[in-house]
Computed example of a mutant assay.
Amino acid sequence: MMEAALRRAQEWSRNLTAWERRRIRPMITTSDNNAAGRLWNDLGHPYLNRFLRRANTTSTTLGPYGRWGLTRTTAADQMRLLGVLSGARHARDVLKERARAYGLRQMADVRRDQRWGVPAGMPRGVRAHLKNGWLPRATLGWRVHSVGVFKGDGRTYRIVVLSHGNPTMAYGVRTVERIAQAVHRGLNKGRGPGQGLTPESEISEVPDGSVEPEGETRDPAA
């Protein structure tokens, strides 16, 4: 949603409006669902789908009835979307540098209790720009996802870990972080980790709220 809003402003030859900025920042930094819902409705499915095609995603399907939390995606598509922000070769024409910098700045400011996941194992001197999602469902248990762009020492790389089938939130976070540790270690030979695993005592078992609990309904026009 953030990238689509940035692209729309670019296409319309304008800056983000104050209204857009007031939704984007809390949506990213604190997982504010009211802000996300309003931006989702403002962008609309047609524009969001056009943006996804522009970003060369091939397997992302928007959630039904306004429920962005039920959007289906793949690790490959998330890597492409992170590439839009990090200026990867395949996506440099999607957003201008100023818009990319704005997006990454929001992801760098995610609040402390939501900074688990792919930063685990990153070395000192590297900065994480991330966004996480976590939601339990009746089938396949907890979905625990973490994506991030990492910058430092003259290099940029991306990590995406999507998981389901986790019995608890803490189990999912630990799974994601163990994978991230291995990736950081492989990409930073000879450098010790600067960030460890998130203590279980700091992992909440409360869903991210992007979808109402199963068994409850919500007016899609609300």
Rank of each mutant, 00 (worst) to 15 (best):
A5W: 11
R8I: 04
W12H: 14
W12N: 12
R14Q: 14
A18V: 14
W19F: 13
E20W: 03
R22L: 05
R22H: 11
P26A: 12
P26R: 13
P26Y: 13
S31Q: 08
D32Q: 03
D32P: 00
A35V: 08
R38N: 12
L39Q: 11
L43N: 09
H45V: 13
N49D: 13
R53I: 09
A55H: 07
N56T: 11
T58D: 10
T60I: 11
L62E: 03
G63I: 10
Y65A: 14
G66R: 08
G66D: 09
W68Y: 10
G69R: 05
R72A: 10
Q78V: 05
L81W: 06
L82D: 06
G83I: 14
S86L: 04
R89L: 07
R89S: 14
R98S: 15
A99D: 12
A101K: 11
G103P: 00
L104Y: 04
R105Q: 15
Q106P: 01
M107W: 15
M107S: 13
V110S: 06
V110I: 13
W116P: 00
W116K: 01
W116I: 01
V118D: 04
P119R: 00
V126S: 00
L130K: 00
L130P: 00
N132D: 10
G133K: 02
W134K: 03
P136H: 11
P136L: 12
A138M: 10
T139P: 08
L140I: 11
G141D: 12
W142M: 06
H145P: 02
S146I: 07
S146E: 04
V149C: 05
F150A: 03
G152L: 10
G152I: 10
D153N: 13
G154Q: 02
Y157A: 08
I159R: 01
V160M: 06
L162F: 12
G165W: 05
G165L: 07
N166Q: 10
P167R: 15
P167H: 09
T168W: 03
A170D: 06
Y171A: 12
V176S: 03
A180D: 03
A182P: 08
G186I: 08
L187P: 05
G190H: 05
R191W: 14
R191H: 15
G192H: 08
G192L: 10
L197I: 05
T198L: 01
S201L: 05
S201M: 07
I203L: 01
I203D: 00
D208H: 01
D208F: 07
G209D: 03
S210D: 09
E212H: 07
D219V: 04
A221T: 06
A221W: 04
